[in-house]
Design a protein around this nucleic acid. Structure first.
Length: 517
RNA sequence: GGCCCCGUCGUCUAGUGGUUAGGACACAGGCCUUUCACGCCUGCAGCACGGGUUCGAGUCCCGUCGGGGUCACCA
């Protein structure tokens, strides 16, 4: 039975790179009919763990990455919080000590630091001298009499090699001599990540450790613990990093300012900000950042688009397939087709996937997705009435591919605005309504609109074309002023659809108002 | 700096000794068109470098250069 896991620490947000790791673990487990476990790495004691993991769990669920065991769902091997498994770690430390694979060390931080500095000065690699290693209870007593406190360190071999057969990187070799006697238990008795990690992976029967490449260098010490504890060694797969746009440096939440210099990234954030502002979502919030999944949810991205994009960020099936449903991903994913080189996050390409997935949605689904945005923006009541839903359906249909993320519906907010509150894009007004004769034509056409029957897109088109013939003008001479008069803008979807959706009364009112300016 | 990983268009990638180095996003131009968006067509653009091995190298070997990760009583 394949068992994989994702082990976020409670930071309060779900990083896009983390999602990619979680996704690959999930995909791998699902493909093999195995299980995907979620574990919370909260060895670092902190308050509000619950609060800090909530956005992470919500984000994963939103993306459709579900877990078989872990927070909220429980499981037979719990608890799934490291902070609740301390006894297990302590037992492991005891075992390490008993087996001679670890030792009590009484060196102070300063003493270690001194050795380190000395090594540096002599330009040789630092390796702790074990000068304060306690080998017997008598040693311990002596050190303690001096007022020293012990940490527990791994007794790493001083020679020999370690070979790891990584599922992605192939064979990787390390010299034990280059490793350190890492601390596994602090002076206060609490345990460190690497120890906890190994113990948990074993306790949770994890068969495949799939994680980011940054952990590759940490693997030797973990393997040492695995072996010392007599555990079976899991398979390792180290994923290439998700990098910054246009660079190969690890993508980080904290470098927003830097990323903003990237045009595509800035555009994406700006796009999101417009939507967020319209629905009253705090734009300056920490989590409102394209590096964080919550951003996409807030703005109305499709989870399947993000999953599709992320799946392809470091993995590919072949030379042509790009569009994958969740099901297809589960069927075709494989570790051996994961790339080795870091992949930089490309906001543009993510957007392309989003557009594609949104296009493919049936219109009822689009309406469903768009409604919450109109509600939050206060443009429709909640719950929405049948009439409003009808209006929305018409708008969504007329908008076609212009709505790329659900929040884009707010670009058509003026359909929900009272006519006397319509805002005008002044440049568009000047350019189109200000033209010689535009107002006169508009007034004339308004009279025709007043009696047009029926008032639907097809009939209106005929009406307008007849008008153009009768006046001997070019179609643009009336269509552009009309659009601005009725929507306030020079861009938008089909004019006849626009008129029909607005209906006669509203069209006339808006034209009057425009003419009065 | 030590150790480890990585290196095909700007970006994501296909490529496993013989290809005019393919696709996608982006970009440029054009078509469609009532604007915008969509769609369609065309174009631009890449094997980091140097040595080997071989009849033949993006593909294998070595070196160089470049990029990244990691070296905590963080996770």
């Amino acid at each position: 039975m394949v068992r994989t896991r994702f082990a976020p620490s409670p930071t309060g947000y779900l990083h896009i790179g983390g999602v990619r790791t979680a996704l690959y673990n999930w995909l791998f487990a699902r493909q093999h009919g195995g299980q995907f476990i979620l574990r919370i790495d909260d060895t670092d004691k902190q308050r509000n763990v619950e609060e800090a993991i909530r956005p992470i769990l919500d984000g994963l669920r939103w993306l459709g990455i579900d877990w078989d065991e872990g927070p909220d769902v429980g499981g037979p091997l719990g608890p799934y919080y490291q902070s609740q498994r301390l006894d297990r770690y302590r037992e492991a430390v005891e075992k390490l000590l008993a087996g001679g694979h670890a030792y009590y060390d009484y060196a102070t931080t300063e003493e270690i630091q001194a050795e380190r500095t000395e090594a540096e000065r002599e330009k040789r690699m630092f390796r702790y001298s074990r000068r304060f290693m306690a080998e017997t209870p008598a040693d311990r007593a002596r050190f303690e009499a001096e007022g020293r406190q012990a940490v527990v360190r791994l007794k790493i071999p001083t020679e020999g090699k370690l070979t790891i057969d990584d599922a992605i990187r192939g064979r990787v070799e390390f010299d034990w001599a280059n490793e350190q006697d890492h601390v596994v238990q602090r002076a206060d008795g609490t345990c460190l990540y690497h120890l906890a990690n190994v113990v948990d992976d074993h306790d949770f029967q994890i068969t495949h450790v799939i994680r980011a490449e940054e952990h590759l260098s940490n693997t030797p010490r973990q393997v040492f613990i695995v072996e010392a504890l007599g555990y079976p060694r899991p398979a390792y797969a180290h994923l290439p990093l998700v990098a910054e746009p246009g660079s190969h440096t690890k993508l980080s939440k904290r470098k927003l300012d830097k990323y903003l210099k990237n045009r595509d990234f800035a555009e994406l954030l700006e796009h999101g900000r417009k939507i967020a502002a319209a629905i009253g979502h705090p734009v300056e919030a920490d989590a409102f950042n394209p590096v964080i999944v919550d951003f996409y949810r807030t703005v109305g991205f499709l989870p399947e688009a993000i999953v599709n994009y992320l799946a392809l960020l470091g993995w590919s099936l072949d030379d042509k397939t790009e569009h994958f449903s969740r099901k297809e991903l589960i069927e075709s994913f494989s570790l051996d087709r994961v790339n080795k080189a870091p992949a930089s996050f490309d906001p543009r390409k993510l957007m392309a996937f989003e557009e594609r997935h949104f296009q493919l949605l049936p219109s009822e689904r689009k309406v469903e997705l768009v409604v919450p945005f109109l509600e939050k923006a206060g443009l429709i009541e909640s719950p929405s009435s049948d009439r409003q839903r009808q209006l929305i359906a018409e708008i969504v249909a007329a908008a076609g591919d212009r709505i790329k993320v659900a929040g884009d519906v707010l670009e058509f907010a003026d359909f929900f605005q009272p006519d006397d509150r319509l805002e005008y894009d002044e440049k568009a007004v000047a350019k189109n309504l200000g033209k010689e004769g535009a107002a006169e034509l508009l007034a004339k056409f308004r009279d025709r609109l007043a009696t047009a029957e029926p008032f639907d897109a097809a009939a209106l088109e005929t009406l307008l074309r007849d008008f153009v013939d009768a006046e001997g003008i070019k179609i643009g001479q009336i269509i552009h002023p009309l659009r601005v008069a009725v929507t306030g803008k020079s861009i938008g979807f089909g004019l006849f659809d626009t008129l029909a959706i607005l209906g006669r009364e509203r069209c006339l009112r808006r034209i009057e108002r425009a003419l009065a300016r």
